[in-house]
Design a protein around this nucleic acid. Structure first.
Lengths: 195, 195
DNA sequence: CATTTATGTCAGTCAGTACTGACAGTCTAT
DNA sequence: ATAGACTGTCAGTACTGACTGACATAAATG
Protein backbone atom coordinates (compact mmCIF):
# COMPACT_ATOMS: atom_id res chain seq x y z
CA UNK A 1 0.00 0.00 0.00
CA UNK A 2 1.18 3.51 -0.77
CA UNK A 3 1.35 5.30 2.57
CA UNK A 4 2.75 8.50 1.22
CA UNK A 5 -0.71 9.83 0.47
CA UNK A 6 -2.11 9.28 3.93
CA UNK A 7 -1.65 11.68 6.80
CA UNK A 8 0.63 10.93 9.71
CA UNK A 9 -2.19 10.16 12.13
CA UNK A 10 -3.94 7.83 9.69
CA UNK A 11 -0.79 5.81 9.19
CA UNK A 12 -0.32 5.42 12.92
CA UNK A 13 -3.95 4.40 13.44
CA UNK A 14 -3.73 1.81 10.69
CA UNK A 15 -0.43 0.43 11.93
CA UNK A 16 -1.87 0.19 15.44
CA UNK A 17 -4.95 -1.73 14.24
CA UNK A 18 -2.86 -4.06 12.10
CA UNK A 19 -0.41 -4.98 14.84
CA UNK A 20 -2.73 -5.01 17.86
CA UNK A 21 -5.31 -7.19 16.10
CA UNK A 22 -2.55 -9.75 15.52
CA UNK A 23 -0.60 -9.66 18.78
CA UNK A 24 -2.75 -7.91 21.34
CA UNK A 25 -2.28 -4.56 22.99
CA UNK A 26 0.42 -5.78 25.37
CA UNK A 27 2.19 -7.79 22.71
CA UNK A 28 3.17 -4.76 20.63
CA UNK A 29 5.44 -1.83 21.54
CA UNK A 30 4.91 1.80 20.57
CA UNK A 31 8.27 1.59 18.82
CA UNK A 32 6.94 -1.25 16.63
CA UNK A 33 3.75 0.62 15.79
CA UNK A 34 5.68 3.75 14.82
CA UNK A 35 8.13 1.77 12.69
CA UNK A 36 5.28 -0.01 10.89
CA UNK A 37 3.79 3.41 10.16
CA UNK A 38 7.13 4.59 8.79
CA UNK A 39 7.41 7.21 11.53
CA UNK A 40 9.33 7.81 14.75
CA UNK A 41 8.07 6.87 18.18
CA UNK A 42 8.38 10.54 19.12
CA UNK A 43 5.87 11.43 16.41
CA UNK A 44 3.47 8.79 17.73
CA UNK A 45 3.52 10.43 21.14
CA UNK A 46 3.22 13.91 19.63
CA UNK A 47 0.01 12.93 17.89
CA UNK A 48 -1.64 10.68 20.47
CA UNK A 49 -0.05 11.35 23.85
CA UNK A 50 -0.25 7.74 25.01
CA UNK A 51 -0.42 4.21 23.70
CA UNK A 52 -3.92 3.68 25.09
CA UNK A 53 -5.13 6.92 23.53
CA UNK A 54 -3.81 5.73 20.18
CA UNK A 55 -5.79 2.50 20.47
CA UNK A 56 -8.95 4.28 21.58
CA UNK A 57 -8.68 6.73 18.69
CA UNK A 58 -8.15 3.85 16.27
CA UNK A 59 -11.27 1.98 17.34
CA UNK A 60 -13.34 5.17 17.70
CA UNK A 61 -13.37 5.44 13.94
CA UNK A 62 -14.89 2.03 13.68
CA UNK A 63 -18.49 1.57 12.69
CA UNK A 64 -20.15 -1.19 10.73
CA UNK A 65 -21.97 0.97 8.22
CA UNK A 66 -25.57 1.03 7.12
CA UNK A 67 -25.52 -1.42 4.25
CA UNK A 68 -27.29 -4.23 6.09
CA UNK A 69 -29.99 -1.94 7.41
CA UNK A 70 -30.54 -0.63 3.87
CA UNK A 71 -30.67 -4.15 2.50
CA UNK A 72 -33.47 -5.12 4.89
CA UNK A 73 -35.37 -1.91 4.22
CA UNK A 74 -35.05 -1.69 0.47
CA UNK A 75 -33.62 -4.70 -1.29
CA UNK A 76 -35.56 -7.73 -0.13
CA UNK A 77 -37.38 -9.61 -2.89
CA UNK A 78 -39.24 -11.88 -0.44
CA UNK A 79 -37.80 -15.05 -1.94
CA UNK A 80 -36.07 -16.93 0.84
CA UNK A 81 -33.01 -18.23 -0.98
CA UNK A 82 -32.32 -15.01 -2.86
CA UNK A 83 -32.77 -12.87 0.23
CA UNK A 84 -30.65 -15.11 2.47
CA UNK A 85 -27.85 -15.16 -0.08
CA UNK A 86 -27.88 -11.37 -0.26
CA UNK A 87 -27.86 -11.13 3.50
CA UNK A 88 -24.96 -13.48 4.05
CA UNK A 89 -22.86 -11.98 1.25
CA UNK A 90 -23.38 -8.57 2.83
CA UNK A 91 -22.64 -10.03 6.26
CA UNK A 92 -19.29 -11.46 5.21
CA UNK A 93 -18.45 -8.31 3.27
CA UNK A 94 -19.02 -6.15 6.36
CA UNK A 95 -17.39 -8.56 8.82
CA UNK A 96 -14.30 -9.11 6.63
CA UNK A 97 -13.91 -5.38 6.18
CA UNK A 98 -13.90 -5.04 9.95
CA UNK A 99 -12.00 -8.21 10.74
CA UNK A 100 -9.20 -6.51 12.58
CA UNK A 101 -11.46 -4.43 14.77
CA UNK A 102 -13.50 -7.54 15.57
CA UNK A 103 -10.29 -9.35 16.47
CA UNK A 104 -9.24 -6.48 18.73
CA UNK A 105 -12.65 -6.63 20.38
CA UNK A 106 -12.36 -10.38 20.93
CA UNK A 107 -8.90 -9.94 22.47
CA UNK A 108 -9.20 -6.75 24.46
CA UNK A 109 -12.81 -6.63 25.65
CA UNK A 110 -11.75 -5.82 29.20
CA UNK A 111 -9.48 -2.99 28.05
CA UNK A 112 -12.14 -1.44 25.81
CA UNK A 113 -15.64 -2.10 27.21
CA UNK A 114 -17.16 0.56 24.94
CA UNK A 115 -15.85 -1.26 21.90
CA UNK A 116 -17.44 -4.47 23.11
CA UNK A 117 -20.81 -2.72 23.22
CA UNK A 118 -20.41 -1.15 19.81
CA UNK A 119 -19.02 -4.28 18.19
CA UNK A 120 -21.97 -6.26 19.47
CA UNK A 121 -24.51 -3.77 18.17
CA UNK A 122 -24.34 -5.07 14.61
CA UNK A 123 -24.91 -8.78 15.21
CA UNK A 124 -27.68 -7.91 17.67
CA UNK A 125 -29.38 -5.72 15.10
CA UNK A 126 -28.92 -8.33 12.40
CA UNK A 127 -30.54 -10.96 14.62
CA UNK A 128 -33.57 -8.69 15.06
CA UNK A 129 -33.80 -7.90 11.34
CA UNK A 130 -33.51 -11.54 10.36
CA UNK A 131 -36.09 -12.61 12.97
CA UNK A 132 -38.59 -10.02 11.76
CA UNK A 133 -37.93 -11.07 8.19
CA UNK A 134 -38.66 -14.72 9.06
CA UNK A 135 -41.84 -13.69 10.87
CA UNK A 136 -43.03 -11.66 7.88
CA UNK A 137 -42.14 -14.51 5.50
CA UNK A 138 -44.25 -16.77 7.72
CA UNK A 139 -47.17 -14.41 7.43
CA UNK A 140 -46.79 -14.54 3.66
CA UNK A 141 -46.95 -18.32 3.85
CA UNK A 142 -43.37 -18.67 2.62
CA UNK A 143 -41.77 -19.96 5.79
CA UNK A 144 -42.64 -22.71 8.22
CA UNK A 145 -43.78 -21.23 11.49
CA UNK A 146 -41.78 -22.66 14.34
CA UNK A 147 -39.07 -20.62 16.02
CA UNK A 148 -38.01 -17.72 13.80
CA UNK A 149 -35.64 -16.18 16.31
CA UNK A 150 -33.77 -19.43 16.90
CA UNK A 151 -33.57 -20.11 13.18
CA UNK A 152 -32.24 -16.63 12.58
CA UNK A 153 -29.70 -17.22 15.34
CA UNK A 154 -28.62 -20.58 13.88
CA UNK A 155 -28.10 -18.97 10.51
CA UNK A 156 -26.03 -16.18 12.03
CA UNK A 157 -23.92 -18.49 14.17
CA UNK A 158 -23.10 -20.57 11.13
CA UNK A 159 -21.75 -17.52 9.36
CA UNK A 160 -20.06 -16.13 12.43
CA UNK A 161 -18.29 -19.48 12.87
CA UNK A 162 -17.17 -19.33 9.25
CA UNK A 163 -16.05 -15.73 9.71
CA UNK A 164 -13.95 -16.59 12.78
CA UNK A 165 -12.27 -19.35 10.78
CA UNK A 166 -11.42 -16.82 8.06
CA UNK A 167 -12.12 -19.09 5.11
CA UNK A 168 -10.44 -16.70 2.65
CA UNK A 169 -7.12 -17.19 4.40
CA UNK A 170 -7.21 -20.92 3.69
CA UNK A 171 -5.56 -21.59 7.05
CA UNK A 172 -8.04 -23.70 8.95
CA UNK A 173 -10.10 -25.46 6.26
CA UNK A 174 -8.11 -25.27 3.04
CA UNK A 175 -10.63 -27.08 0.84
CA UNK A 176 -13.57 -24.89 1.78
CA UNK A 177 -14.17 -21.57 0.04
CA UNK A 178 -16.43 -18.83 1.30
CA UNK A 179 -18.63 -18.40 -1.77
CA UNK A 180 -19.59 -22.08 -2.21
CA UNK A 181 -20.08 -22.26 1.56
CA UNK A 182 -22.52 -19.33 1.42
CA UNK A 183 -24.40 -20.78 -1.55
CA UNK A 184 -24.72 -24.25 -0.03
CA UNK A 185 -25.62 -23.11 3.46
CA UNK A 186 -28.30 -20.78 2.10
CA UNK A 187 -29.75 -23.64 0.05
CA UNK A 188 -29.77 -25.81 3.14
CA UNK A 189 -31.54 -23.17 5.21
CA UNK A 190 -33.99 -22.41 2.42
CA UNK A 191 -34.81 -26.11 2.13
CA UNK A 192 -35.25 -26.41 5.89
CA UNK A 193 -37.49 -23.39 6.24
CA UNK A 194 -39.69 -23.53 3.13
CA UNK A 195 -43.09 -25.15 3.77
CA UNK B 1 -12.63 -24.88 44.77
CA UNK B 2 -10.54 -26.57 47.40
CA UNK B 3 -6.97 -26.11 46.31
CA UNK B 4 -5.42 -27.64 49.36
CA UNK B 5 -5.67 -31.12 47.90
CA UNK B 6 -3.93 -30.32 44.67
CA UNK B 7 -0.18 -30.31 44.27
CA UNK B 8 1.75 -27.12 43.92
CA UNK B 9 2.41 -27.57 40.21
CA UNK B 10 -1.24 -28.32 39.44
CA UNK B 11 -2.36 -25.17 41.19
CA UNK B 12 0.09 -23.09 39.19
CA UNK B 13 -0.94 -24.71 35.91
CA UNK B 14 -4.59 -24.11 36.59
CA UNK B 15 -4.03 -20.51 37.69
CA UNK B 16 -1.99 -19.90 34.54
CA UNK B 17 -4.74 -21.30 32.28
CA UNK B 18 -7.44 -19.33 34.06
CA UNK B 19 -5.66 -15.98 33.85
CA UNK B 20 -3.99 -16.30 30.46
CA UNK B 21 -7.20 -17.41 28.73
CA UNK B 22 -8.81 -14.24 30.03
CA UNK B 23 -6.09 -11.63 29.57
CA UNK B 24 -3.51 -13.12 27.25
CA UNK B 25 0.06 -14.19 28.01
CA UNK B 26 1.40 -10.63 28.03
CA UNK B 27 -1.52 -9.31 30.02
CA UNK B 28 -0.72 -11.34 33.14
CA UNK B 29 2.34 -11.20 35.42
CA UNK B 30 4.03 -14.19 37.03
CA UNK B 31 3.28 -12.54 40.36
CA UNK B 32 -0.45 -12.56 39.54
CA UNK B 33 -0.37 -16.21 38.50
CA UNK B 34 1.44 -17.23 41.69
CA UNK B 35 -0.94 -15.23 43.86
CA UNK B 36 -3.96 -16.80 42.17
CA UNK B 37 -2.43 -20.20 42.91
CA UNK B 38 -1.95 -19.24 46.54
CA UNK B 39 1.82 -19.51 46.23
CA UNK B 40 4.85 -17.24 45.94
CA UNK B 41 6.40 -16.12 42.69
CA UNK B 42 9.62 -17.77 43.86
CA UNK B 43 7.86 -21.13 43.98
CA UNK B 44 6.50 -20.61 40.47
CA UNK B 45 10.04 -20.17 39.15
CA UNK B 46 11.31 -23.13 41.22
CA UNK B 47 8.80 -25.42 39.56
CA UNK B 48 8.76 -24.12 35.99
CA UNK B 49 11.88 -22.08 35.41
CA UNK B 50 10.21 -19.54 33.15
CA UNK B 51 6.83 -18.03 32.39
CA UNK B 52 6.80 -19.50 28.89
CA UNK B 53 7.68 -22.94 30.25
CA UNK B 54 4.75 -22.68 32.64
CA UNK B 55 2.36 -21.92 29.78
CA UNK B 56 3.79 -24.69 27.60
CA UNK B 57 3.46 -27.19 30.45
CA UNK B 58 -0.11 -26.06 31.06
CA UNK B 59 -1.24 -26.57 27.46
CA UNK B 60 0.80 -29.79 27.07
CA UNK B 61 -1.67 -31.52 29.32
CA UNK B 62 -4.48 -30.57 26.99
CA UNK B 63 -6.17 -33.09 24.80
CA UNK B 64 -9.76 -33.28 23.64
CA UNK B 65 -10.46 -36.87 24.64
CA UNK B 66 -11.91 -39.75 22.70
CA UNK B 67 -15.59 -39.36 23.38
CA UNK B 68 -16.51 -38.07 19.92
CA UNK B 69 -14.54 -40.81 18.16
CA UNK B 70 -16.31 -43.40 20.32
CA UNK B 71 -19.67 -41.84 19.58
CA UNK B 72 -19.15 -42.16 15.83
CA UNK B 73 -17.81 -45.70 16.15
CA UNK B 74 -20.30 -47.12 18.60
CA UNK B 75 -23.31 -45.00 19.42
CA UNK B 76 -24.89 -43.95 16.16
CA UNK B 77 -28.47 -45.11 15.66
CA UNK B 78 -28.60 -43.98 12.01
CA UNK B 79 -31.54 -41.63 12.61
CA UNK B 80 -30.48 -38.18 11.52
CA UNK B 81 -32.11 -36.08 14.22
CA UNK B 82 -31.13 -38.36 17.08
CA UNK B 83 -27.57 -38.73 15.87
CA UNK B 84 -27.07 -35.02 15.20
CA UNK B 85 -28.40 -34.15 18.65
CA UNK B 86 -25.98 -36.61 20.27
CA UNK B 87 -23.11 -35.21 18.23
CA UNK B 88 -23.76 -31.59 19.04
CA UNK B 89 -24.36 -32.24 22.74
CA UNK B 90 -21.02 -34.07 22.85
CA UNK B 91 -19.40 -31.28 20.83
CA UNK B 92 -20.49 -28.58 23.25
CA UNK B 93 -19.59 -30.75 26.24
CA UNK B 94 -16.04 -31.22 24.94
CA UNK B 95 -15.59 -27.64 23.74
CA UNK B 96 -16.94 -26.11 26.96
CA UNK B 97 -14.65 -28.35 29.00
CA UNK B 98 -11.74 -27.03 27.00
CA UNK B 99 -12.96 -23.46 26.64
CA UNK B 100 -9.96 -21.89 28.30
CA UNK B 101 -7.43 -23.80 26.23
CA UNK B 102 -9.36 -22.94 23.07
CA UNK B 103 -9.35 -19.30 24.12
CA UNK B 104 -5.59 -19.43 24.71
CA UNK B 105 -5.17 -20.96 21.28
CA UNK B 106 -7.27 -18.24 19.63
CA UNK B 107 -5.22 -15.58 21.38
CA UNK B 108 -1.70 -16.92 21.31
CA UNK B 109 -1.45 -18.94 18.12
CA UNK B 110 1.84 -17.27 17.16
CA UNK B 111 3.35 -17.94 20.60
CA UNK B 112 2.32 -21.61 20.60
CA UNK B 113 2.22 -22.99 17.04
CA UNK B 114 2.10 -26.58 18.31
CA UNK B 115 -1.03 -25.81 20.27
CA UNK B 116 -2.65 -24.40 17.14
CA UNK B 117 -2.00 -27.70 15.39
CA UNK B 118 -3.30 -29.80 18.26
CA UNK B 119 -6.31 -27.59 18.91
CA UNK B 120 -7.30 -27.83 15.28
CA UNK B 121 -7.03 -31.61 15.22
CA UNK B 122 -10.42 -32.11 16.85
CA UNK B 123 -12.59 -29.95 14.59
CA UNK B 124 -10.79 -31.37 11.56
CA UNK B 125 -11.46 -34.90 12.69
CA UNK B 126 -15.08 -34.07 13.51
CA UNK B 127 -15.56 -32.62 10.02
CA UNK B 128 -14.30 -35.90 8.51
CA UNK B 129 -16.48 -38.04 10.80
CA UNK B 130 -19.57 -35.98 10.08
CA UNK B 131 -18.91 -35.97 6.33
CA UNK B 132 -18.51 -39.76 6.28
CA UNK B 133 -21.66 -40.11 8.37
CA UNK B 134 -23.62 -37.98 5.88
CA UNK B 135 -22.24 -40.01 2.97
CA UNK B 136 -23.24 -43.29 4.64
CA UNK B 137 -26.69 -41.90 5.48
CA UNK B 138 -27.02 -40.98 1.81
CA UNK B 139 -26.21 -44.54 0.82
CA UNK B 140 -28.91 -45.73 3.18
CA UNK B 141 -31.35 -43.40 1.44
CA UNK B 142 -31.79 -41.30 4.56
CA UNK B 143 -30.09 -38.14 3.38
CA UNK B 144 -30.33 -36.02 0.27
CA UNK B 145 -27.22 -36.38 -1.81
CA UNK B 146 -25.78 -33.01 -2.61
CA UNK B 147 -22.69 -31.77 -0.79
CA UNK B 148 -22.12 -33.77 2.42
CA UNK B 149 -18.85 -32.10 3.31
CA UNK B 150 -20.23 -28.61 3.00
CA UNK B 151 -23.33 -29.54 4.99
CA UNK B 152 -21.16 -31.05 7.69
CA UNK B 153 -19.10 -27.89 7.70
CA UNK B 154 -22.19 -25.64 7.94
CA UNK B 155 -23.44 -27.67 10.90
CA UNK B 156 -20.08 -27.40 12.64
CA UNK B 157 -19.70 -23.68 11.98
CA UNK B 158 -23.11 -23.05 13.46
CA UNK B 159 -22.05 -24.77 16.68
CA UNK B 160 -18.60 -23.27 16.70
CA UNK B 161 -20.20 -19.82 16.37
CA UNK B 162 -22.47 -20.62 19.29
CA UNK B 163 -19.51 -21.92 21.30
CA UNK B 164 -17.49 -18.74 20.69
CA UNK B 165 -20.45 -16.69 21.92
CA UNK B 166 -20.54 -18.80 25.10
CA UNK B 167 -24.32 -19.05 25.35
CA UNK B 168 -24.14 -20.41 28.93
CA UNK B 169 -22.59 -17.17 30.11
CA UNK B 170 -25.60 -15.17 28.92
CA UNK B 171 -23.31 -12.31 27.93
CA UNK B 172 -23.85 -11.86 24.21
CA UNK B 173 -27.34 -13.25 23.57
CA UNK B 174 -29.16 -13.34 26.92
CA UNK B 175 -32.42 -14.80 25.63
CA UNK B 176 -30.85 -17.75 23.87
CA UNK B 177 -30.02 -20.93 25.79
CA UNK B 178 -27.69 -23.64 24.57
CA UNK B 179 -30.03 -26.63 24.90
CA UNK B 180 -32.99 -25.15 22.98
CA UNK B 181 -30.50 -23.85 20.43
CA UNK B 182 -29.11 -27.36 19.92
CA UNK B 183 -32.57 -28.92 19.67
CA UNK B 184 -33.86 -26.34 17.19
CA UNK B 185 -30.79 -26.26 15.01
CA UNK B 186 -30.69 -30.05 14.80
CA UNK B 187 -34.37 -30.08 13.79
CA UNK B 188 -33.62 -27.50 11.14
CA UNK B 189 -30.70 -29.50 9.75
CA UNK B 190 -32.64 -32.74 9.88
CA UNK B 191 -35.48 -31.10 7.99
CA UNK B 192 -33.10 -29.70 5.40
CA UNK B 193 -31.25 -32.96 4.80
CA UNK B 194 -33.99 -35.57 4.96
CA UNK B 195 -35.24 -36.59 1.50
C1' DC C 1 15.72 -35.70 66.95
C1' DA C 2 18.25 -34.85 62.77
C1' DT C 3 17.85 -34.42 58.05
C1' DT C 4 15.54 -33.48 53.95
C1' DT C 5 12.21 -31.21 51.28
C1' DA C 6 9.44 -27.49 50.20
C1' DT C 7 8.05 -22.87 50.51
C1' DG C 8 8.30 -17.76 51.62
C1' DT C 9 10.75 -13.33 52.12
C1' DC C 10 13.86 -10.05 50.63
C1' DA C 11 16.79 -7.49 48.06
C1' DG C 12 18.28 -7.46 44.30
C1' DT C 13 19.82 -7.69 38.52
C1' DC C 14 18.70 -6.95 33.98
C1' DA C 15 16.22 -5.90 30.07
C1' DG C 16 12.40 -3.83 28.26
C1' DT C 17 8.89 -0.24 27.54
C1' DA C 18 6.08 4.05 27.90
C1' DC C 19 7.03 8.45 27.54
C1' DT C 20 9.76 13.14 27.44
C1' DG C 21 12.64 17.59 26.73
C1' DA C 22 16.00 19.61 23.99
C1' DC C 23 17.79 20.37 19.77
C1' DA C 24 18.32 19.94 14.65
C1' DG C 25 16.66 19.46 9.94
C1' DT C 26 13.16 19.74 6.22
C1' DC C 27 9.30 21.44 3.93
C1' DT C 28 5.74 24.78 3.06
C1' DA C 29 3.47 29.15 3.04
C1' DT C 30 3.84 34.01 3.02
C1' DA D 1 14.22 35.11 3.19
C1' DT D 2 11.80 33.85 7.08
C1' DA D 3 8.50 31.92 10.17
C1' DG D 4 5.82 28.15 11.24
C1' DA D 5 4.67 23.37 11.14
C1' DC D 6 6.16 18.97 11.30
C1' DT D 7 9.30 15.23 11.92
C1' DG D 8 13.62 12.75 13.56
C1' DT D 9 17.48 11.94 16.82
C1' DC D 10 19.27 11.50 21.20
C1' DA D 11 19.77 10.89 25.77
C1' DG D 12 17.41 10.37 29.01
C1' DT D 13 13.51 9.13 33.37
C1' DA D 14 10.61 6.14 35.65
C1' DC D 15 8.59 2.14 36.02
C1' DT D 16 7.61 -2.70 35.19
C1' DG D 17 8.24 -7.52 34.98
C1' DA D 18 10.96 -11.87 34.43
C1' DC D 19 13.92 -14.02 37.11
C1' DT D 20 17.56 -15.05 40.96
C1' DG D 21 20.68 -16.02 45.23
C1' DA D 22 20.76 -16.01 50.02
C1' DC D 23 18.64 -16.95 54.02
C1' DA D 24 14.76 -18.30 57.14
C1' DT D 25 10.86 -21.22 58.47
C1' DA D 26 7.84 -25.12 58.51
C1' DA D 27 6.53 -29.66 57.56
C1' DA D 28 7.55 -34.31 56.44
C1' DT D 29 10.36 -38.29 56.88
C1' DG D 30 13.50 -41.77 58.61
Amino acid sequence: MDNSKMGTSDRLLMAAINLISERGYNGVTTQEIATAAGLSEKTLFRHFGSKLNLLESAVDRFHYGNEMRKLFKEKLVWELEEDLLMVCREYHEIMNRNRKIVQINLREATLLPELRERAHQYPKELLEFLTEYFIEMGKRGKLIQTNPRMHAFTFMMSHFGAFVNDLDSGKSYPGIQLEPFMIESVKLFARALTP
